[in-house]
Design a protein around this nucleic acid. Sequence first.
DNA 1: CGACAAATTGAGACCAATCAAAGGGCGTGG
DNA 2: CCACGCCCTTTGATTGGTCTCAATTTGTCG
Lengths: 241, 241
Amino acid sequence: MGLASGQLRRLGELIMPAHRVPRGGYVFRAGGDTNTLAVVRRGTLKSAVLDEQGREQVVGFHLTGELLGLDGIAAGKYCRDVVALEDSEVCRIPYPELQKLSNDIPAVANYIQTTMSREISRAYGVMLLLGSMRAEMRLAFFLLDLSRRVLARGYSPTRLSLPMTRKEIGGYLGLKLESVSRLFSTFQRDGLIEVRGKAVNLVELGRLQEIVQDAHPQLGKLLENGDASVLNAQCAALNLA
Amino acid sequence: MGLASGQLRRLGELIMPAHRVPRGGYVFRAGGDTNTLAVVRRGTLKSAVLDEQGREQVVGFHLTGELLGLDGIAAGKYCRDVVALEDSEVCRIPYPELQKLSNDIPAVANYIQTTMSREISRAYGVMLLLGSMRAEMRLAFFLLDLSRRVLARGYSPTRLSLPMTRKEIGGYLGLKLESVSRLFSTFQRDGLIEVRGKAVNLVELGRLQEIVQDAHPQLGKLLENGDASVLNAQCAALNLA
DNA sequence: CGACAAATTGAGACCAATCAAAGGGCGTGG
DNA sequence: CCACGCCCTTTGATTGGTCTCAATTTGTCG
């Protein structure tokens, strides 16, 4: 079911102009009040929970088109930081007004529900990753997941440019940065990938898939839910909801 | 905002009579079509992703009052099994009709959104647990989390009766059953708890909290989001939404 | 009581963390 | 433009925590 033009206009008015977020800049802070969602227009960001000792758990990386901030709806507070990994742009969406709008327009409410449901599925996949996969499987998973998401945006699925550091990858995969670095070297030695700093070339996608599949045939399905929140910034996607 | 009596009646008609689920019985199966949600009336259940080698990742345990099945809304398929750990009762709720109802009644839509949002926050907390905590912290977290949830239902927060096996606890915490067993023994030796099979007495709640807090002061906040889906089976809670 | 699953405990292996050092990349300022 | 400093990355040596394999005990249900 689509949206009437009047509804689309109301939705359009909600979307604030894109604004720049410099590398290292915050979109949300843990503990901050939830007054907006945000859509990534350009760039890459991470969601992370940080503690005083400087350790962080990265709960997700966000590419262009993804919708951020749904975790905070219940508590009224965000439960984690969202930080730009490179110079990025986001559109903010005032949450209370979106809430009102979703009460009037079922398609909007349905879209939000669907997006949140996908994020739950994705989170379960990551729990599986962290709870029962060994380091090499985790990194293979990470590379394939990124490959698929980059492909969905029309870029090469094999020539990746990683905007995040080894430490951040480790923070996502539950590994230390040295372990991540060693695994990159091992994969390169075995001819699976070519590494030159942040530039990674996936030479043997099939063998990377084997590494993951051997461990968890189910994971492939969960992966497909991964790219939760692809929302066209003009909200054209809502026509499909 | 509450519900008009006509709305409550419509909602009541949606809730199917509670039916028994024997120990080991399924409420949902991974890959099954999403046609219902379910509310736990009595008993305890687990959500788990299983692979052919017999390994499983438990993504959550569910106590009385919790709402199950929201993960499947997006994909149209559930992404994991839900199995009763002891003889239980659940009420099923046909999802398509609930969807229609939520389009008419904003309070219902808001409740679903809030519940899903809490589940996302909880999942992030578990990711933190699995990604950056050591075994003893994980088990302390598990015991405290269960203690809090049991307390919320009016039972003693210190005298726990664990319906799940050591293997299932390990499946949740990313540990092998032997490790879980060893940790129970260690905690008992140190006077933190008393273990007699499935019956566990939490002697030193404070010291258990220290074990978790030392590692991640943030986790306490995430814990509070944990008890996502407490939905009174008569849906009285919706009056608060 | 018997059969089977669950739990405990031990010994040893292995994987990732830790500690440590050196090399690279990038931006800033001279 | 180069030099410096800082962070990121790589690699090595060692430690340590958890898994694995194995045997035994305990508990549960027919």
